[in-house]
Amino acid sequence: MADIARSFNDLNFLDHLSTGNSFLHRLDPRVKLLTVMGFIFAVVSFPRYEISSLLPFFFFPAVMIPLANIPVRYLMRKYLFLLPFAVLIGIFNPIFDREPFAFIGPLAVSGGMISFLSILIRFTLTILAAFILVAVTGFNGICLALKRFKVPEVFCVQLMMLYRYIFVLSSEAVKMARARELRSFGRKGQGIKPYVSLIGHLLLRTWDRARRVHTAMLSRGFHGKFYMRRPLALKASDVIFCLAWLFLFIVFRLYDIPAVIGEILTGAVA
């Protein structure tokens, strides 16, 4: 119960963040989407044993998070919540890939360890980028940008409706879970059983609501098309923001920055 209510609050909070008015919030949603997509593409395109050249990419969240006023504690909580998924993806790498890849003194580090670490770093980077994007653009802004990028309307509208009704649905779920908890008097109640029917009820309610929403749409002349007029105009700052980041990502991608710095330093010493 506490978990459902908490995730609901977190979602609310993320939505609240997106209504801010910082420089980043005012940027055109399209350039933000493009920048983050460029970032994610650059991060995932590295070969599997790469670690050091991924590190410079932390520059992006390090700059964006303070600029967007996203509380780090909140971000960390969401990050830790998702971390197990990434661990699950990479956990078998060290077991199957035992070939020594590098030596730290007498200690052999297997290729699997390296690729596991690489997965975790990539996961961290992409999750942070996605959170930053939603926090400074808002979900609907992203849908709008997708629509402008000629993503089929059906998908954009689906996403938009999903976001609109996730608030209604989750508050219903919170209420139902609370009703269950209040009548189980701090004990376990009847275990998992009430949840089964709780989820079933939610599904049925969703079904009913979908029908009513559709009725409401039809009664206002809906015939398959969503109109949304949002005059989006690219400003010079939008273009500069996007190009500067993309340029940086390309540099990070092409050059192993830590190695280059190391070479310069050691070269200077020698």
């Binding site: 849908c143 609109r164 929403v213 009725t215 109109y227």
Partner: peptide
């Protein structure tokens, strides 16, 4: 309709009120 949540399905109130006229 009875439940306003059924009637307000667009991202903002403006979009919702404009939905009918656009159609």
């Amino acid at each position: 309709f009875q439940d306003p949540d059924d009637q307000l399905f667009m991202p903002t109130i403006h979009d919702d009120v404009a939905f009918g006229p656009y159609n």
